[in-house]
Design a protein around this nucleic acid. Structure first.
Lengths: 227, 227
DNA sequence: CACCGAAAAATTTGATCATATTCTGTCGCC
DNA sequence: GGCGACAGAATATGATCAAATTTTTCGGTG
């Protein structure tokens, strides 16, 4: 890794320990589909490509394994897990429950400024859908939900929800890559209206539908892919 | 570390990598209250007391931090988190949802043999309650739920439920230590009946109540403890 | 003369790396 | 086709560097 001389440029980089940087990098790669389901990952490969030592890479990998983003493939072999239909069903169940609750909490804490910020993200998302920018869609969609989590102000629920994204992220990428960004669900407009009205149950319902539609679509694709 | 000559004694020990052993050890200590909420933990202290190298200990700690069982206390100081009432409320919400679903799934997969095994664990639990054996109660209670998870056969849900135990484990120990094992909730008998009848919704209801009662009791104690 | 506060040194602890050791999977040879 | 050597990768250790806390000391003041 390049020696940073504790100056301004990218202070956030040097501020954080290497294992944290590696973790964030890997996490993004998995979340936004730069690593495909089933793809193998080696420690040495990472130390080379990221230019970091073994220890930090090791710690990052353990952490991601613990989060279900990476999987121990038996003989000391590590790979991105392939989501089965059954896996996805479990994810759907929890995600509906948790995201609905986060939405309720977000409704309670809603401010005009927060609503504005959410709307901005939703606009970016619409644009990504129109232009068929899969990467942009994935990122904007995640950002929208992530901001909602922040507003909800519930660290434990947020952490659990975040973890679920890591599980279906790679497969979501595959689905979008195959079927484009057109008929993807977007209940965000309804959610925004309900959020502004502080209608907690309304937001929760919209969120459940948003999650359900997106996930069910994945389920459909998985059922084709799984022989 | 002592050189192990790949022989019989404790083959399971040598079979697993050191970082896994360290993880399991620490996990048990946290789950069953050998580490109190707020207690500090140092890497070097662990390398000494467990007789392991730095890297394995490091990996185990990262993993536990990622699971919410340990917490990064600002200035590179690691400790067992203190559960706030707000934290516990979030835990309660998710736990009710997930454990109920696991109970439903367990009901579907129930066999006479499984019911028998559960009953055995419940008997051990009753005995622990009578004799006021706090450690035994914590272990049996966990074992009962853990076996139910196994029967439910839903890896992702199980992993999430397990993680929640790590969050409230230390505080549960404190509560039990203070108020004994007497008026602890035990809906396990109802659950067993419903499980044998394969009444999924009945099990789910009993489980929700079991969780709710136990957790609400903790909430009450926390409200006294928090100044 | 005793006490308080601040600054500096020392110890403790965490982060990273380079290296040795062990295990697994594979390729060649019998 | 089976057995053994080799290669590659992962596990684990110890050393080294950096940061932070704690302790110690010194100067000033009541």
């Amino acid at each position: 890794m390049i020696k940073k001389q504790a100056t301004n440029p990218a202070q956030a980089d040097t501020k954080q320990p290497v294992h944290e940087q590696v973790y964030q990098t890997l996490r993004s790669m998995i979340l936004f589909g730069e690593l495909a389901p089933g793809q193998a990952v080696t420690i040495q490969g990472l130390t080379d490509s990221l230019g970091a030592g073994m220890t930090p890479v090791r710690e990052a990998i353990r952490r991601l394994m613990s989060e279900g983003a990476l999987m121990f493939q038996g003989n000391r072999r590590i790979s991105v897990p392939v989501l089965t239909q059954e896996d996805l069903r479990q994810v759907i169940f929890v995600r509906k429950s948790i995201e609905a609750e986060l939405a309720r909490r977000a409704a309670h804490n809603m401010t005009p400024a927060a609503a504005e910020a959410l709307e901005q993200l939703d606009l970016a998302l619409d644009q990504a859908i129109e232009t068929g920018d899969v990467g942009g869609y994935l990122r904007s969609n995640y950002d929208f939900h992530a901001l909602l989590y922040t507003i909800a102000d519930a660290p434990i629920l947020t952490e659990m929800a975040d973890r679920l994204w890591l599980r279906f992220g790679p497969s979501l990428r595959v689905v979008c890559g195959r079927f484009g960004t057109q008929n993807l669900p977007d209940r965000h407009k309804e959610m925004l209206d309900a959020l502004r009205a502080k209608d907690a149950e309304g937001v929760a319902r919209a969120m459940e539908q948003d999650v359900e539609q997106g996930m069910e679509q994945m389920l459909g694709v998985l059922s084709e892919t799984e022989a």
